[in-house]
Amino acid sequence: MNEPKIKRVVIACGAHGDIDIAVRGAAVLAARWRVPLHGVFLMDENLLRLAMLPFSRHVSLSAPELSGTLEVDELRNLLSALAASMRRAIEAAAKHEGIDWSFAERRDLPSAASGAVAEGDILVVDAGARPFSGSWRPRSLWEGAAGDLGAMVLLRRNEGGERPCIALVLDAGTAAHDRVLGAVRALAGPQDQVHVLPLGDLAADAGFREAMLRQFELASVPNVSVEHPLLDLADVRNRIARLNPRLVAIETSALGQEGVQALVANTWCDLLLVGAA
């Protein structure tokens, strides 16, 4: 079995400004796995370019009256301050858990992604909804690219909760079974009820059910149920809505880019997106 070797927990930082939820979860995971914590701050050249345009303005979500023009220097200062703040938050979390930590700044997403998402990294992205914007929020660059990073990405939501329920979406046509299974085993606890949601023909495999049960049993996760096969994305979403799990783990190739984005947009729990190695 191709067990994922988690070597580092990487926290995605950027102008979106929210990493509290990500840091909290990431530090715990890093401590559990005894790996270092790493923060990558995306300076976002797009924003700096925008600030250089003559009509650039920002609209405050907390109060429109606070809206104003975007100034390059002000924006740069804000991003620097934000980076420093996130660095301190990661440092504090790492020290609290007694683990090593590091922090880096990148100019754009490609350089950030290439530096962050190495083999063996799990990227933790804060995808919590900000209270002032209700349920809608513009996705950060990290979220937008989550399905394309080709590595394990954990989208952390602030819906939180400690419900002992994990949904695992598997598809026969993908090649990342072992990775996603390994990740779920690493994330699950002995109290968790793991619901395996097979897509398409997978359920027809006579040995599939026994294999699943055995794999989780080895990982000391005894409560596993392999459910009836699901037909499509809508079926998956309905089932997830009924289960109301703490975490949904999915192979990105199982649903495709659009399917992943739809799931990201329509679920409130944590999402573990696992691409092919």
Partner: peptide, 17 residues
């Protein structure tokens, strides 16, 4: 776009400002 202060609108070409 998301900025540290809120939201901003920007002309986009090829996915970038």
């Amino acid at each position: 776009l998301r900025t540290p202060m809120g939201l901003a609108l920007a002309p986009i070409r090829n996915g970038e400002v």
